[in-house]
Amino acid sequence: MTDSTPRADADIARLIATEAARRLLEIRAENPGVPGRELKDLGDQGAQALIAARLAELAPGDAVLSEEAADSAARLGAPRVWIIDPLDGTREFSEGRDDWAVHVALVEDGELTLGAVALGGPEVVLVSTDVAAEAPLADPIRIAVSRSRAPKIVEAVAEATGADLVPMGSAGVKICAVVRGEADAYVHGGGQYEWDSAAPIAIARAAGLYTSRLDGSELVYNQPNPYLPDLVVCRPEIRDSVMDAIGAALASPSE
């Protein structure tokens, strides 16, 4: 029988994220010169296979929601559901960059209780049971933003708050950048799913950061439709200014 204490779950999450990230580096090394689309697929498939096997071994009987596996309505009634993104940031992975991540989260009785995120490999793995927000607030504040497709609302928030935009890769990398003090906020309004944010949001909450939807409502996981298109993560001391700027942007006809 699997030991389901919080410490054991954290160990499982850390182990799986670490091993999947290591496997992803191996896949990249084993396939030099492979076109980007093919390398993305190899990464997704390889990490998914490893994670699925490890969860079957270490958390048998638990439900799983993964970007790279068929969904099942059975998870909606399950007391424990692992939410997995085997490779968050496929573009960055395929380009040889390190701003990609592996996400492993756990929802228990409808509550997000645990998250582990491996950042760009097995050496840096953040786990929600052992994390704290780092570094002082920057002046001007920094907002993490997509390298290729910054949502218009982010530009409006940056203008209203006088923030600098800091381009970087995957959603997990951006949220963890706020945790690690490399950014002060992450605002997203362009469409995501639960697996894009569950694990890093668990870490952000554990670090004392503010997290919500753009409208201020709570981020809720293991829903029938896993589409979760927007979010805010920021240092608590700038919550009011960031949320006020978001509210103004949402109310603007131009948005």
Rank of each mutant, 00 (worst) to 15 (best):
L39N: 03
V242G: 08
A198F: 04
Y186K: 08
D184S: 07
A202H: 07
S66H: 00
W82G: 12
T90G: 09
V179M: 10
I84W: 06
V107R: 00
R235S: 06
D3Y: 01
T211V: 15
L50H: 10
A29W: 03
T18Y: 00
G110D: 04
G33A: 02
N31S: 11
L50F: 09
R180N: 06
D244L: 06
P79H: 06
D164F: 05
E237Y: 07
A53L: 10
P122T: 08
V104T: 10
S252L: 07
L42K: 09
G247Q: 06
P79C: 06
S217C: 04
L76S: 13
V233G: 08
P229I: 04
D109G: 12
A20Q: 01
Q223N: 11
V34G: 02
R97E: 09
V242N: 06
D88K: 02
A101D: 02
P32K: 12
L214W: 00
R205T: 14
L87G: 13
S94H: 03
D215I: 08
D240T: 15
P236W: 09
T129N: 15
E19I: 04
D62G: 03
V157Q: 02
G121P: 01
P200D: 00
I175S: 03
A73I: 10
E57M: 08
V166N: 05
A245S: 12
L58P: 03
R91Q: 13
V157F: 00
L209F: 13
G46M: 07
H103M: 09
V154C: 07
E68I: 13
V104C: 15
P253T: 12
S252R: 05
A150W: 01
E26S: 13
G120Q: 01
Y186R: 09
D99Q: 05
D44V: 11
I153R: 02
P6M: 07
I27C: 08
V178I: 12
N222H: 04
R235C: 07
R75T: 08
C176A: 08
